[in-house]
Design a protein around this nucleic acid. Structure first.
Length: 307
DNA sequence: AAGACGAAAGTGGTTGA
DNA sequence: TCAACAACTTTCGTCTT
C-alpha cells in the first residue's frame, strides 16, 4: 500500500504524531493539529433495505454496533426455503415470521433511525470510529432498557455520544454536541447523566489536559506554548486548583497564561470562545493560577523582554 | 477604542435535612 | 421536597494600554 508521507502544512515537518485513540494527528514540531478530526474512510455500506428488495449479503460483515442489528441479524428464512418444508412446519414458519416482524420492527426501526442520526452527528463532529462504536453500543443498551421512553431519540443519541467521548478521553464540550445535534445543552446533560447512571457507566471527570491540544490548535498557538500550558496544568492540579472546577475553564486559563508567557498573546475573548467559557471564568482561573503558582514573575519577565 | 478587570445579580445543578 | 450552596454566566461600569 503506498502510504503517503504527510507533511505538516505549517512547518513542512514530517515529524508527525498520530494519536489513534483521539483521532488526532499532531505535528511534533509546531504543535499544529493537522487532522483533529479524522474521517473514517472505512466501509460505508448501506444500512437500510432489509424490509424488501434484495436480500442482504452480510457474509462476513464485521460485528458492529453501528449496524442496527449488529450485523448479525437473525432472519427467519425466505419463501424460497419453503419448498423444503411440510405443511405442518409451514404454519410454524409463518408464525415465526410474523412474530419477528412484530417484535423487531418497533425496536429496530427506532435503532435504525437513531443510528443514522448518530452517524450524522458523529461525522459532523468528525469523531473517531471507536467513539462512534461506543456511543452506538450505549444507545443500543439504552433502548433495550427502555430508557428512551419519554425522551426524544435525538437527545439520547447526543447523550450517548457525549458519554462515549468522555470515556475515550476525546472530550467535546456540551456546546459542540449541542451545535451538532441541535439539542439543547441542558437536555443533553440531563439525558447523559440519566443514561450513564441507569447503565452504570462510570465516567472519570474529564481531564483538562485532554482539551489542550484541540484548543491550542484552534488558537494557533506554538508547540512551546502548548507544552507550557500542560506544565501549568500539572502544577495547578498539584495545588488542587482543579477539583470541582469546570475542566474547560482550567484548560482555557492555562492556555491563556502560557500564551502570555510565550509572548503569543491571545485576548481573553479569543480563548474564551474556543473553550466555550466566558472571559470571567478565565479571569477567575487565571487569577488563581497567578496567585498559587506565582507565575506572575514569568509573565512580567516576558513583558519586559518585549519592551 | 479595545481589552482587561471586578462587582453584582441570575441560572441550573448538587447536596443534605 | 426544599433550601443552602458552589460554579459559572451575564451584564455593566471602570481602569489600562
Amino acid at each position: 500500500m503506498p502510504e503517503m508521507i504527510k507533511k505538516c502544512p505549517e512547518c513542512a515537518s514530517i515529524n508527525l504524531f498520530w494519536n489513534r485513540e483521539k483521532g488526532e494527528v499532531i505535528c511534533k514540531d509546531c504543535g499544529l493539529v493537522i487532522e483533529d478530526k479524522m474521517v473514517d474512510h472505512g466501509q460505508e455500506w448501506r444500512e437500510f433495505d432489509p424490509e424488501s428488495g434484495e436480500r442482504k449479503r452480510r457474509t462476513g460483515a464485521p460485528m458492529t454496533y453501528t449496524q442496527y442489528d449488529q450485523g448479525l441479524g437473525t432472519e427467519v428464512g425466505h419463501t424460497g426455503d419453503l419448498f423444503k418444508l411440510k405443511s405442518k412446519d409451514r404454519n410454524k414458519f409463518f408464525r415465526l415470521r410474523k412474530w419477528q416482524s412484530r417484535i423487531s420492527t418497533a425496536i429496530e426501526r427506532n435503532l435504525k433511525l437513531a443510528l443514522a442520526e448518530l452517524k450524522r452527528v458523529s461525522s459532523y463532529l468528525k469523531l473517531p470510529k471507536s467513539v462512534e462504536e461506543e456511543s452506538a453500543r450505549i444507545y443500543t443498551l439504552a433502548v433495550q432498557r427502555g430508557l428512551v421512553r419519554g425522551r426524544s431519540m435525538e437527545s439520547v443519541v447526543a447523550g450517548a455520544l457525549y458519554a462515549a467521548c468522555r470515556r475515550h478521553d476525546v472530550p467535546r464540550t456540551l456546546d459542540e454536541l449541542s451545535e451538532a445535534s441541535g439539542i439543547e445543552k441542558k437536555e443533553i446533560g440531563r439525558t447523559y447523566r440519566f443514561v450513564t447512571r441507569e447503565l452504570g457507566i462510570s465516567i472519570m471527570p474529564s481531564n483538562p489536559a485532554d482539551y489542550i491540544a484541540r484548543f491550542a490548535s484552534a488558537l494557533k498557538l506554538s508547540a512551546e506554548a502548548q507544552s507550557k500550558s500542560v506544565e501549568i496544568l500539572e502544577a495547578a492540579q498539584k495545588a488542587e486548583l482543579t477539583s470541582g472546577r469546570g475542566p474547560t475553564g482550567i484548560a482555557a486559563a492555562a492556555l491563556y497564561v502560557s500564551a502570555l508567557i510565550n509572548g503569543e498573546k491571545r485576548t481573553q475573548r479569543e480563548v474564551a470562545d474556543v473553550a466555550g467559557v466566558t472571559e470571567v471564568t478565565i479571569r477567575n482561573r487565571y487569577k488563581e493560577l497567578l496567585e498559587k503558582l506565582k507565575l506572575d514573575k514569568d509573565v512580567k519577565k516576558t513583558k519586559k523582554r518585549k519592551k
